[in-house]
Design a protein around this nucleic acid. Structure first.
Length: 495
RNA sequence: GUUCCCAUCGUCUAGGGGCCUAGGACACCUCCCUUUCACGGAGGAUACAGGGGUUCAAAUCCCCUUGGGAACGCCA
C-alpha cells in the first residue's frame, strides 16, 4: 500500500450527466477534493457524456449546481455558470474529444491490439447463455479477433451493420496486480474480462477507453473512485499497457449502501443531493456526514468543517468496507451544524422554507434573533423551521388532538377566560417576559389553578398543543391581538 | 454461475500482535436540569461472524467455512 505522492497532485471527479448527483458521487468528489487540497494539487471536473442517449444538458446543469452547492469547486473543467470549457487541458467534455479517441483507436487497430468485431447482439446473447450454463464467466468470444485489418475493411465495404472496435485481451499476460491505495494488493486474472468494446458501432467511444485516454492526457496522478470500478480498472490497466502509458495510482473506496445493504442507486432516487437540499440539510453537514462514511478523523473528531477535513485527510484512513447511509445520524449531524450557525445566517438559510409556506414574519432583526434562540434547539433540518414558526404566523392557529386532554380539565375554562381578559387588557402590542409572568401569576390567583392545570391550558391557547418551547420566551414574540384571538378560539372549543 | 472485494455494538467507526475485562458517535434505556417538550449533562445495555493455525501472547497475521456486496454491457 504505497502512498507515494508525486510532486504535483492532479485528481478529478468525472460524473456522467445522466441524472442527479447522488451522495455516493458526492463522496467520491469530496475525497478527491480533500486529497487535492491536502496535497496542494488540483481538482478537476471532467464530464463523461459519451452516452448520447442518456446525457442531457439539464442533468449537467444539475450536477454542476449540486457541486457548487456543496462548495466542491474545481480548478479545471466546465465553467459553473456557462458550462463552457475552462482550463488548459480541455476539452473537458468527452463528447468534444471524439477526434482524440478515434485517433488512438486507429493506432490500436493498426498495432493489432484491437479489432473490428461484427458480432450481433443476438450472437453475443447466445454465447452468454451458453457460457453461463457451462458455469463460466460470460465473455465475448469473437471470431473476428484474428482477422486482418484488410479482411475487416473488405467486410465493412459490403455494408451491413457497423462493427464495434474491441480490445484484444487474448495475448495479454496472465495476471495483473493493482496496488490499490485503499485495499492494498489486488490480483486480477486477465481472463476476468473478455474483449471489451472501445468504440461503439456509431464510432462513439466507451467509458473505459475515454477514461484512460483522458486521465493520461489530463495528467491525473491519482484516481479515487468507487469499488464498483475495480473490474474496470483491470480493463484500463490493459489499455495503459497497450499504449505504453504509466497508470495513475488508483484507490477504490467502498460503496455507500442502502438500509437493505444494496448499493445506493440513483435509480432509487432517494439520495440525490438536490433532494437533501430541499429537505433542509446544510451542505456542510452533508459533506461532514458522507466524509465519515469510509473515512475517520485520527482523533475521532466527528463534527467538522471541510477545512478540518482537509487538515486531517489521509488516504491511509480510508476504510475498505461498505457503509450504510444512516439517515437518523445524518439528521443529528445536521442539527449540530445548524446549531453552530450564527443566527443571522440561520435566518437566511430558513427563508426559502418559510417562503415555501408563504409565511410572513417580522422583519425586526432583534425579533428574528430572539426567535431563533428559542427555536434552534428544536431544529434538526431547516424545514423544521416551518412548523416551529407556524404558530407565530397569524391565521395558522389550530388546536391539535394532543391538546384534547388538557382542554377537558376542570379549571381549563376559567384559566382560559382569565388569560384572555388579562392579555386583552395589556396596554401594548407585545409583552415582555416579566409582563407575561405577571399575567400568568394573576391567572393563577384568580382561578386557583396551578401546576400543569394552569400551564397547559395557556400553552394550548398560545400554540395549540401541550408541548413546545418555553412560554415566557414564546409569548413575548407574539402580538397581543393574535394571543387574544387564539384564546377565544380555544375557549370556543370547550364552550 | 464465474471472478473480484469486504467482515468490530442495530448503524457509522477506533484499533493493525501485549496499552482491549475492545474506545467514541448516532439510536435505545435510566437519572439530572426543566411547572411541558426539546436542548444540555451524568450513567447504562449492546460488538471482534464461525472454525482451524502461527505465537509466550491474536479483534489484530495466515488458511478454510459462512455471510454480505460488486462486476461480468455498443452504461458510466
Amino acid at each position: 500500500m504505497s502512498s507515494q505522492i508525486s510532486p504535483h497532485v492532479r485528481v478529478r471527479f468525472a460524473p456522467s450527466p445522466t441524472g442527479y448527483l447522488h451522495v455516493g458521487g458526492a463522496r467520491t468528489a469530496l475525497y478527491n477534493y480533500l486529497f487535492a487540497k491536502k496535497n496542494g494539487g488540483e481538482f478537476i471536473l471532467r464530464i463523461e457524456d459519451t452516452d448520447e442517449a442518456r446525457s442531457t444538458e439539464e442533468s449537467l446543469r444539475g450536477v454542476v449546481d449540486d457541486l457548487v452547492w456543496l462548495n466542491l469547486l474545481w480548478a479545471e473543467g466546465v465553467d459553473p455558470v456557462t458550462l463552457k470549457d475552462q482550463g488548459p487541458n480541455g476539452p473537458y467534455k468527452q463528447s468534444e474529444r471524439m477526434h482524440i479517441y478515434k485517433k488512438i483507436a486507429e493506432q490500436l487497430l493498426n498495432e493489432g491490439k484491437a479489432y473490428y468485431c461484427f458480432l450481433t447482439d443476438a450472437e453475443i446473447e447466445q454465447q452468454r447463455e451458453a457460457q453461463m450454463k457451462a458455469g463460466q464467466q460470460p465473455h465475448v468470444q469473437s471470431p473476428y479477433a484474428d482477422w486482418t485489418l484488410d479482411q475487416a475493411k473488405a467486410k465493412m465495404a459490403e455494408g451491413g451493420t457497423a462493427p464495434v472496435i474491441r480490445f484484444k485481451t487474448k495475448h495479454l499476460k496472465k495476471d495483473y496486480v493493482l496496488n490499490d491505495l485503499v485495499r492494498g494488493e489486488v490480483k486480477f486474472p486477465s481472463d476476468m474480462v473478455g474483449d471489451f468494446v472501445l468504440l461503439r458501432g456509431g464510432g462513439m467511444p466507451v467509458y473505459n477507453f475515454c477514461c484512460v485516454i483522458d486521465d493520461h492526457l489530463m495528467k491525473m496522478t491519482h484516481v479515487f473512485r468507487a469499488e464498483e470500478h475495480l473490474p474496470n480498472t483491470l480493463r484500463q490497466m490493459m489499455i495503459y499497457e497497450a499504449m505504453g502509458w504509466q497508470t495513475p495510482q488508483f484507490g477504490h473506496m467502498a460503496l455507500i449502501l442502502d438500509e437493505d445493504r444494496q448499493k445506493l442507486s440513483k435509480r432509487k432516487g432517494a439520495v440525490a443531493c438536490g433532494q437533501l437540499k430541499d429537505e433542509g440539510y446544510l451542505p456542510s453537514a452533508v459533506l461532514n456526514f458522507i466524509a465519515l462514511l469510509g473515512w475517520s478523523h485520527p482523533d475521532g473528531k466527528e463534527i467538522m468543517s471541510v477545512d478540518d477535513m482537509i487538515k486531517a485527510f489521509d488516504i491511509s484512513r480510508l476504510n475498505p468496507s461498505g457503509a450504510i447511509f444512516d439517515r437518523v445520524k445524518f439528521k443529528w449531524m445536521n442539527s449540530q451544524h445548524l446549531r453552530a450557525l450564527p443566527n443571522t445566517e440561520l435566518w437566511k438559510a430558513i427563508q426559502p422554507f418559510l417562503a415555501r409556506e408563504k409565511m410572513e414574519l417580522p422583519s425586526d432583526p432583534v425579533w428574528q434573533d430572539k426567535s431563533l434562540n428559542l427555536f434552534k434547539p428544536y431544529m434538526e433540518i431547516l424545514s423544521d423551521a416551518i412548523e416551529l414558526y407556524r404558530p407565530l404566523n397569524d391565521n395558522s392557529y389550530v388546536i391539535l388532538p394532543e391538546a384534547d386532554e388538557a382542554m377537558k380539565w376542570e379549571a381549563t375554562k376559567a384559566v382560559l377566560t382569565a388569560w384572555k381578559e388579562l392579555v386583552a387588557a395589556h396596554p401594548s402590542d407585545y409583552m415582555t417576559e416579566e409582563e407575561f409572568l405577571k399575567i400568568q401569576d394573576e391567572v393563577k390567583n384568580k382561578t386557583g389553578a396551578k401546576g400543569k392545570n394552569l400551564f397547559m391550558p395557556i400553552r394550548v391557547a398560545v400554540i395549540g398543543k401541550p408541548h413546545g418551547a418555553e412560554l415566557k420566551i414564546l409569548v413575548p414574540l407574539m402580538k397581543k391581538s393574535s394571543l387574544v384571538a387564539r384564546a377565544e378560539k380555544a375557549l370556543a372549543t370547550i364552550a
